[in-house]
């Protein structure tokens, strides 16, 4: 424990900078994955052909090994933060896109028909009917994506992206267990925090009417 604390406090280890880098390495891809996943999901869900393409592409991306995804962008973007961020974004898109799609398809078509019939505009249907019903499903997708990104981000250390991955990879190279542990603990703690936080958010976003038990 003391060794760990000492490691964290040692200014040569740049805990603050590495933390900032790691958060950037996680948050930027997660945010981009949400935007891209939701936008594409909304654009394709009405068309059978487009959804077929999007859903299958998502499943294909999911099948690509994480390491391959990480290295595949190196020839394009060289090493560093950028290829890792791009790879992590790609990794985060499928769960967001799939859940957006599934959520939208899951909205009762009769509710949409009723909404149109009472004279809601497309925007009103989206904000008042679809969004509240899709958000909990979307949140579940974001949770999966976020945990995955956080858990995978340390591998960015392999291509010089910085962050906690540096500790782990350094530690492995120099057989320094303290350093390995220091990095792993932070990553694990962060992943769990994300999981817990997002689960809470998911429950918060679930409308009471969907939780209610039949009387």
């Amino acid at each position: 424990m003391d060794a760990l604390l000492e490691f964290y406090l040692d200014p040569r280890n740049n805990l603050v900078e590495q933390t900032i880098t790691f958060f950037q390495l996680c948050l930027i891809p997660i945010a981009l994955a949400i935007v891209i996943g939701v936008v594409v999901g909304v654009l394709v869900y009405r068309s059978a052909a487009l959804s077929f393409v999007a859903v299958n592409a998502s499943n294909l991306i999911r099948a690509v090994p994480v390491l391959a995804a990480l290295f595949i962008f190196v020839p394009i973007f060289k090493i560093g933060f950028l290829p890792a961020a791009v790879a992590l974004t790609l990794l985060g898109i499928p769960p967001v896109l799939l859940n957006t799609y599934v959520g939208l398809r899951g909205v009762d078509s009769a509710a949409i028909e009723a909404a149109r019939g009472m004279g809601m505009t497309g925007w009103q249907i989206m904000t008042r009917v679809q969004a509240p019903l899709v958000l909990p499903v979307l949140a579940a997708g974001v949770r999966t994506a976020a945990v995955q990104v956080v858990a995978t981000a340390p591998l960015g250390g392999l291509i010089g992206a910085g962050g906690y991955g540096d500790y782990i990879i350094d530690g492995v190279n120099s057989l320094n267990t303290t350093e390995i542990l220091a990095g792993s603990i932070l990553v694990a703690a962060l992943a769990m925090l994300v999981e817990i936080g997002m689960s809470w958010l998911e429950r918060r976003l679930t409308p009471a009417g969907l939780k209610a038990q039949a009387a």
Binding site: A110, A111, G117, G209
Partner: peptide, 20 residues
Amino acid sequence: IELRRRIGYVIQQIGLFPHM
């Protein structure tokens, strides 16, 4: 849109909004 707001519409599948 204006037209539909002046006309009542009831369907067999009802289509109440489950979250309200």
